[in-house]
Amino acid sequence: MEKPLMIALDFPDLDQVRQFLAQFEQTDQLTVKIGMELFYHYGPAVVTTIKQADCDIFLDLKLFDIPHTVEKAMEQLGALGVDYVTVHTLGGFQMLQAAKKGLSDGAKRAGLPKPHLLGVTELTSISEQVLKEQQNCRLDMNNQVVSLAKLAKDSGCDGVITSALELSDLVKSVGTDFEYVVPGIRMHQDAAGDQNRVATPKDARKDGASAIVVGRPITQSNDPEHTYQRYLKSWTLK
């Protein structure tokens, strides 16, 4: 899908993942997100298992360490055959460049396309107050996210993870030749949960999102495919 709706597979074990995916008629049309919970439990085997369903895979591990460590870790991830991986932009220019190199080297070694490298800006659970009082950031949220996105682009990342609330400023300041992947997506009737900066699929599309990530509203639904189609319609309908 050109502008995917990514489903966050926030499950504790693979049996639940298999049961969830079995409720979809065409899993080869899906893009799914594997996060820390599943990956730290199963390691690369979880990628192998989910690839059997022909899903595109977004591996969201938010690497954040010294440049050499991140480069070598990315070499391993680049060889897995996933489509997207994440790194934290707060690691700085050298770390982001190292991530790109490691990802490219790993994919080349495995004879695979290089995954898209996405920089995490500020988590959607971070409020303006937390940014100021706990992270001691001198910038407001919009300017902080724009600054980190510019850093990611200058370092060679393909895009960033960002709240929809910063999208308009990002598109103006960073450009349209960059990917903006937006979590914290909720329909008006769905609970926000622990997300502080949320938006609807329609709003995210209108403001320039390249992809959106939806988790619990779909995975905890009584009819996941129906809910997925509802979100997809809102995301793609012009």
Results as ranks from 00 to 15, higher is better:
91 G>D: 07
49 T>R: 07
30 L>P: 11
14 L>R: 10
53 A>I: 02
61 L>W: 01
214 V>W: 02
107 A>N: 09
203 D>C: 14
73 A>E: 01
68 H>R: 00
8 A>Y: 07
225 E>F: 05
143 N>S: 15
98 A>Q: 08
20 F>I: 13
205 R>F: 14
23 Q>F: 08
168 S>C: 07
95 M>H: 08
64 F>M: 15
210 S>P: 07
224 P>I: 03
179 E>M: 15
208 G>E: 03
126 I>M: 13
49 T>M: 11
173 S>P: 12
153 K>E: 10
166 E>N: 08
237 L>W: 07
189 Q>D: 13
78 G>L: 13
98 A>T: 10
181 V>R: 03
168 S>K: 14
6 M>G: 05
140 D>K: 12
141 M>A: 15
229 Q>R: 12
46 V>M: 01
218 I>W: 02
102 G>M: 02
164 A>E: 01
184 G>A: 14
64 F>H: 15
151 L>G: 04
98 A>C: 10
166 E>L: 05
137 C>A: 12
3 K>R: 13
176 T>M: 12
82 V>T: 14
70 V>Q: 00
53 A>W: 08
74 M>P: 03
35 G>N: 03
211 A>K: 00
180 Y>L: 10
236 T>N: 04
97 Q>P: 11
155 S>R: 06
183 P>A: 14
154 D>V: 13
199 A>Y: 11
132 K>N: 00
113 P>A: 03
160 V>W: 05
115 P>T: 01
201 P>C: 12
131 L>V: 01
102 G>Q: 02
62 K>A: 04
46 V>E: 00
139 L>K: 14
204 A>E: 04
52 Q>M: 03
3 K>Y: 14
206 K>S: 09
64 F>A: 09
62 K>T: 07
21 L>K: 08
202 K>V: 14
24 F>D: 03
195 Q>C: 09
134 Q>H: 15
168 S>A: 09
43 G>F: 00
187 M>T: 15
126 I>G: 02
196 N>H: 14
105 D>F: 11
237 L>D: 10
224 P>R: 01
78 G>Q: 11
59 L>E: 00
112 L>H: 04
47 V>H: 00
208 G>V: 04
182 V>P: 08
107 A>T: 11
145 V>M: 08
67 P>E: 00
60 D>G: 03
131 L>D: 03
11 F>I: 11
90 L>P: 10
21 L>A: 07
59 L>C: 00
104 S>L: 12
20 F>V: 14
9 L>T: 07
182 V>A: 04
98 A>L: 09
53 A>E: 02
155 S>P: 09
22 A>S: 13
160 V>D: 02
168 S>R: 08
27 T>E: 02
136 N>G: 10
171 V>F: 06
92 G>S: 09
201 P>N: 11
92 G>F: 11
215 G>V: 06
167 L>E: 03
105 D>T: 15
165 L>A: 06
169 D>C: 12
52 Q>T: 09
174 V>Q: 05
13 D>V: 15
215 G>Y: 02
90 L>Y: 10
187 M>D: 13
97 Q>D: 08
59 L>V: 00
42 Y>P: 07
